[in-house]
Design a protein around this nucleic acid. Structure first.
Lengths: 226, 226
DNA sequence: CGAATGCTTCGATTATGATCGAACTATGAA
DNA sequence: TTCATAGTTCGATCATAATCGAAGCATTCG
């Protein structure tokens, strides 16, 4: 009864609606200010401040001061992973907050999961990388193969600067709508950034939706089939 | 702000200490009665009853009546997966309830994660299955290969009866102490059962610890190296 | 400097829900 | 039938924490 990590504390942090909204908003991967998060969660600035400090002490979010603004973001991919897992469970146990609508369909097709691509497009990318042996999976470790390195570089991602970081290059993240993995880690992030840079898709500012242009979509298809 | 699944509700269910204790107790995979769970969580029977009904309505646990007893168990592997993910996050953000001790070491070595083997022994099994190509991983789908089928059958697992179920045969589950995957799904369950049947290891009744005998440990090693 | 903006702290209010005693129902045993 | 055990329901109590107004810092801008 008293062994192991204290899951109640962490779950309790997530379990308050206002805080859950804050965390969900941060799943877009963007750093947001206290005021923005307050608005997002539908609470006053004072209340938000209190919640934010709890989340910070709890290690779920990390602040960054910039002038008189204070930006918050999720403190690690782990947090995003737990949130996605919770969304999956909540969806499967039928605890949806709204009826499924067109917006929901868009979310399922392509969305942001803490800076990397999730949804159907995300899992397809991940699966293709494995099928074409651009990515190799040993146990739960993921590595770029030689051809994978070439592929990624050709796509325009600067691997050299990525490898500098301590953070793992490739990680997998379980997708709540697809029940499959998509690519996380710094490479996952770089992929999404590159897709945006190429103008293939745009992130919606308010939601987690990633909307591909028609051209972008077919370019993406070609990339996968190449 | 209102799209997507209601994670706050689910997280809130887990976020109450008494309920977290109940769920943790059920991570052993054993079905427990209301009274047992009350004792496990250190609360009265009335209080436990209230919590259990909330967890049941929330879809996290499933009851089974047997005479005048009511047995509860986790309602799915998904729930166990979320709990493990939470434990990982809690452990990494430093929210341990107790100092690490010998019991903790035993837990890290081998423990039960909702009826399948977790901890170091669990992840080693999983990795070996992949290395020796007994298990193949395509995207996030896992399949037994032909040689894998032979391997498992030789080990004494009755695959035929397992395949009958609708539930997926192989699944992966992220381990909180190892940060790697171990084998879940009905095959994972069968593996642990078989290990127990062979007398290689015993589950502790009260904790999640799986303690291997000396002989069992070396048999296990041999199985992996074979 | 003073004014404005972003955020935090304090304090009072309020709502929620965890808790358990007591009474009640259901199953099983004598 | 009567008694015992397992579990639920009801009701009262109590503690916690979410909320926001008001005041207080801190930073930037004019």
């Amino acid at each position: 009864m008293k062994e192991g990590p204290d899951i109640a504390h962490v779950a309790n942090l997530i379990g308050e609606p206002a805080r859950a909204n804050i965390l969900s908003a941060l799943m877009t991967g963007k750093a947001l200010t206290a005021s923005e998060l307050a608005q997002e969660a539908g609470i006053s600035l004072q209340t938000a401040s209190s919640h934010l400090s709890k989340l910070e002490v709890g290690g779920l979010i990390a602040p960054r001061k910039q002038g008189r603004h204070k930006y918050f973001s999720l403190s690690s991919d782990d947090v995003a992973h737990v949130l996605e897992a919770l969304m999956g469970l909540a969806a499967r146990t039928g605890h949806l907050r709204t009826r499924t609508g067109p917006r929901d369909a868009a979310l399922r097709e392509a969305r942001v999961c803490y800076n990397h691509l999730a949804g159907e497009m995300g899992t397809r990318l991940f699966d293709t990388l494995l099928e074409r042996k651009l990515l190799s999976q040993q146990g739960s470790d993921l590595h770029l193969t030689q051809s994978g390195t070439r592929f990624v570089t050709d796509f325009g991602v600067d691997l050299v600067s990525l490898r500098d970081h301590k953070a793992p290059l490739c990680k997998e993240c379980l997708d709540w709508s697809e029940r499959r993995s998509h690519l996380a880690g710094s490479l996952g992030r770089a992929f999404l950034t590159r897709i945006e840079t190429l103008g293939w898709a745009k992130r919606d500012r308010k939601t987690r939706i990633v909307s591909f242009t028609r051209q972008g979509r077919s370019s993406f298809e070609r990339l996968l089939e190449d």
